[in-house]
Amino acid sequence: MQILIRTDASTKIGSGHVMRCLTLADMLKEKGAKIYFVCREMEGHLCELIETKGYQCFRTFNVKQTFDQKQDAMETLHLIEINGLKVDLIIADHYQIDEQWEQVVRKAAPKVMVIDDLANRRHDCDLLLDQNYFNKFETRYDGLVPAKCRKLLGLKYLLLRPEFYEDNITEENTNESVADVLVFYGGSDSTNETLKVLDALNLVDVTSLTFHVVVGSSNSNREIIELRCRERNYHFYVQINYLAQLMRTVDLALGAGGVTMWERCFLGIPSIVTVVADNQRESTEAAADAGAIWNLGWHECVEKEDLVDIINRAIEDPNGLKEMTKKAKQLMQSDIKYKTHPVVEAIMEILGHGDGFYVPKN
């Protein structure tokens, strides 16, 4: 069973697409699938990271500012052909790809899967995954995918790495005060939120707090951030592979919307969230409406003073943090575990390998 994943990362795009695809690749690999990636070599690409994870990454040089779907699709077909691949499934996780690209690459694979969360364009696919939570999320893709397409929608299908399920803490947080705080705004942090938080912390009494500041390898300000952390005795981490373990040690987090927001919710970590991309707006608002996070809103409107105010409020309200922990875990259904992830089960089924792979374990 051969599966090809088409996705990208860059300083502008961020690392989220690649990271969730790597999570899915690892799950599929456990089922015996051979996984290949196709990525563009843009500034901040993660091709080497993909390769260190044990996957072959074919590099395309379609790096024009204006993305050409037809050219990219033809180049993907060419890479499949010259490498002698017999692809059973092509997975596309890319905001610039729609039915035009998907119709072309169908020449090389019987099945196509799309990972999306924008619901703003048509797809020609057999399986669509949108792992986010929105108001009325069940109907977001009506009219955008073929009638035959199976839709995997909602937090049930969230692609969490295995370490998030290991020894998951399902009890309420019993800490009486905030002691450890996580600061992580994604791999690239293209809007520079980490430095904004560090500026705000200069105005907060942090003598009783321990800060853990995490950045990705594609963060262009990582050296400046490291220096600032060293000056303030904050713990500093780059591209770590034990984020879930670190998350379990903290009482409060500051970060962006998107997948990492749901990861924090899954572990019941009270979060102060800044929206750094358009595709995060709706889901962040929905999570805030459910009481699972604090939503500071669009990053350009978040000032240093806003961060100072919310951090102080969080520190002074441990009971509010406990309630947020409870609501976050309820939203995520964190007590439910799967023998096989439901996304993997759906993929196995459309490829003819279903039959009992998906067994909920309470």
Rank of each mutant, 00 (worst) to 15 (best):
K148I: 05
K148A: 10
K148C: 04
K148M: 04
K148N: 06
C149V: 05
C149T: 14
K151P: 05
K151E: 09
K151V: 04
L152Q: 12
L153P: 01
L153N: 04
G154V: 15
L155M: 11
K156G: 03
K156C: 02
Y157V: 07
Y157I: 05
L158K: 04
L159Y: 05
L160Y: 06
L160N: 06
R161M: 03
E163T: 14
F164G: 00
F164C: 04
Y165V: 14
E166F: 14
E166G: 02
D167Q: 15
N168F: 10
I169E: 14
T170W: 11
E171V: 13
E172I: 09
T174L: 09
N175K: 10
E176K: 15
E176W: 11
S177P: 01
S177G: 07
S177Q: 14
V178P: 08
V178L: 12
V178D: 09
V181W: 02
L182Q: 08
L182T: 01
L182Y: 03
V183S: 00
F184Q: 01
Y185G: 03
G186I: 01
G187W: 11
G187D: 13
S188E: 06
S188Y: 03
S188I: 07
D189V: 04
D189T: 07
D189L: 09
D189G: 08
S190E: 03
T191A: 06
N192E: 07
N192W: 00
E193I: 02
E193F: 01
T194L: 02
T194N: 00
T194K: 02
L195H: 06
L195Q: 12
K196M: 12
K196G: 10
K196P: 09
L198G: 09
L198I: 13
L198Q: 07
